[in-house]
Design a protein around this nucleic acid. Structure first.
Length: 495
RNA sequence: GGUCACGUGGCCGAGCGGCUAGGCAGUGGUCUGCAAAACCAUCUACAGCGGUUCGAAUCCGCUCGUGACCUCCA
């Protein structure tokens, strides 16, 4: 195992060697979705990126505690601290209990994550499940003088915090700049300063989601839940905190302020921010109306798509780009990914079927060296800030070797049993374990396909070419192809 | 306006100062009943202009262009 993982830390803006606080344990917190509507592909990209990070850390032998929350209260529509609760709004609109909304979209979220072969987090806490803890931290912040109460709401005093510590270290913002850019807002009466943010909000008469507190009935501020839940499950200082880039400011900045205010400690050692999914160069977002739902992508039922794409094609497509780059969504790119992915999937199928047999090849040091180097590079690439794009390029290099072994163009004895085993193990583990790419059978008919192959071979031996072509066509309509090789006949996924 | 990214060949995308990225598409071969698959070979690059350096896609400056954040957003 090659272990010198480097991570691009958003906090320091540098690529740093990853050193967990208590190895082999690693604590990772990722900001999850607000479950007030369906997740779109942009959301999926972020969670997929962290899925690979989680998977690779485990592959390296770390004991990861992966916490990803579900926001089910406190996230407001529109301007900070003044809008309606997103979930409450949807509940009113549909005349449902807010928790029904939460359950519906949380279920949907899990289904989507599962569809894209994303591993579930170890702990998936909800904001409403931690009201008590949130009230406690509000008390602490009040006691320590970092917050003030006005009309049943409690606000974090950003100015005061900035004097003692430094507000804006993560996003590189200065308080003066922020102030000069603050828009004049109506109804912003309670806050002392426009930069202050609510940590507890008074609930008006018609507000459905409410809990009793020392300051009257209310609900927690959005930024607070992450501080509380990450601290509760991972400690006051933990290893990795992740989320989409758009959460850097103000969400993560506020989290830092709250944590430092409450504990006096730096909450997170490594911040990881993933980049956005774009459509025609513009960020995919619900408000812009350019978002794709996972189901639309799979079925192809969207005005901008001319066909559907399987979940693994999409996963592959996303992993072909580094998580910190924007990724643009287009039919052309997706189509190219479909073919590329099939090639990798075929490689997986082939390598699993290969077993070392001593043949008539002579030991070939150059091949041995090449294969070992590619295997090493899989680790080097992932160690380089989880560079999945580069890792995939290495896997394609391995596919060439695998295919050559299958067709007999490369002999087993040329590379030897050890190298063969390493090749097989590396390819399978990086595909399935690390990248989470699996085979997708277009038909649920493995044994039947094998039977067809037997007929094919027979027809071929009898030079009954009409039947040969017919069998080819039948399989092709089922998205399978026949690989006619010198020594054997096999089937594969149509590319 | 402020802050910060980015601009790579027909397309998508790695690249962090010298050593073939990779995929898709194209071209030429090997193989094949014909194909397909596979393998081998091959063609198009680093937005522009300066500078640093023995050497720059890679560092610095300027220009042009695109985007993100500054308000809810993964």
């Amino acid at each position: 195992m090659i272990k010198d993982l480097k991570i691009q830390n958003s906090l320091t803006r540098k690529k740093e060697l990853f050193e967990p606080i208590n190895p082999p344990f690693v604590g990772m917190y990722v900001c999850g979705p607000t479950v007030y509507s369906d997740v779109h592909m942009g959301n999926v990209r972020t969670f997929m990126s962290f899925d690979v990070i989680n998977r690779y850390l485990r592959h390296l032998g770390y004991k990861v505690r992966y916490v990803r929350n579900i926001t089910d209260v406190g996230h407001l529509v529109g301007d900070a601290d003044e809008g309606e609760d997103k979930i409450g709004k949807k509940a009113k609109l549909e005349n449902l209990e807010p928790m029904q909304i939460v359950q519906r979209y949380a279920n949907g979220f899990h289904q989507v994550m599962d569809m894209f072969n994303t591993l579930p987090p170890d702990i998936e806490p909800t904001a409403t499940g931690h009201i008590v803890e949130q009230i406690e931290i509000v008390k602490v912040l009040l006691e320590k003088g970092w917050a003030y109460e006005v009309n049943g709401s409690v606000y974090f005093d950003v100015n005061k915090f900035d004097e003692a510590h430094e507000y804006g270290i993560l996003s590189g913002r200065k308080i003066e700049d922020l102030l000069s850019n603050t828009r004049e807002l109506d109804g912003q009466t309670d806050k002392n300063n426009p930069l202050d943010f609510a940590i507890w909000k008074n609930a008006s008469e018609d507000h459905i989601m409410r809990w009793p507190s020392p300051w009257g009935d209310g609900f927690p501020g959005w930024h607070l839940e992450c501080t509380v839940m990450s601290t509760k499950y991972l400690g006051e200082t933990f290893d990795i905190h992740g989320g989409g880039m758009d959460l850097k400011f103000p969400h993560h900045e506020c989290e830092i302020a709250q944590s430092v205010g409450a504990t006096g400690k730096k909450p997170v050692n490594y911040w990881i921010h993933t980049n956005m999914l774009t459509v025609n160069g513009q960020k995919m977002s619900k408000s812009l109306g350019n978002s794709f739902l996972p189901t639309e992508l799979v079925t192809g039922d969207h005005k901008m798509l001319d066909q559907g794409y399987t979940p693994m094609t999409v996963r592959f497509f996303m992993l072909q780009t580094h998580y910190s780059s924007t990724l643009d969504f287009s039919n052309e790119a997706l189509k190219a990914s479909q073919k590329g992915y099939k090639k990798l999937a075929n490689g997986l199928k082939v390598v699993k079927s290969l077993n070392y047999i001593a043949d008539d090849g002579a030991k070939n040091d150059k091949q041995i060296e090449q294969i070992n180097k590619i295997c090493d590079n899989c680790y080097h690439s992932m160690n380089d800030d989880f560079n999945t794009a580069k890792t995939i390029a290495e896997l394609f290099n391995l596919v060439k070797k695998i295919n050559s072994l299958q067709t007999g163009q490369l002999k087993f004895t040329e590379i030897g049993e050890d190298t063969f085993n390493r090749l097989k193990e590396t390819y399978i583990s990086f595909m399935e374990e690390v990248l989470g790419l699996k085979e997708e059978m277009p038909t649920a008919a493995g044994p039947l396909v094998d039977a067809m192959l037997e007929f094919y071979k027979k027809a071929k031996a009898e030079k009954n070419y009409e039947q040969v072509d017919e069998i080819r066509n039948i399989l092709k309509t089922n998205k399978l192809i026949i690989k006619d090789m010198k020594s054997s006949v096999e089937w594969g996924y149509e590319e």
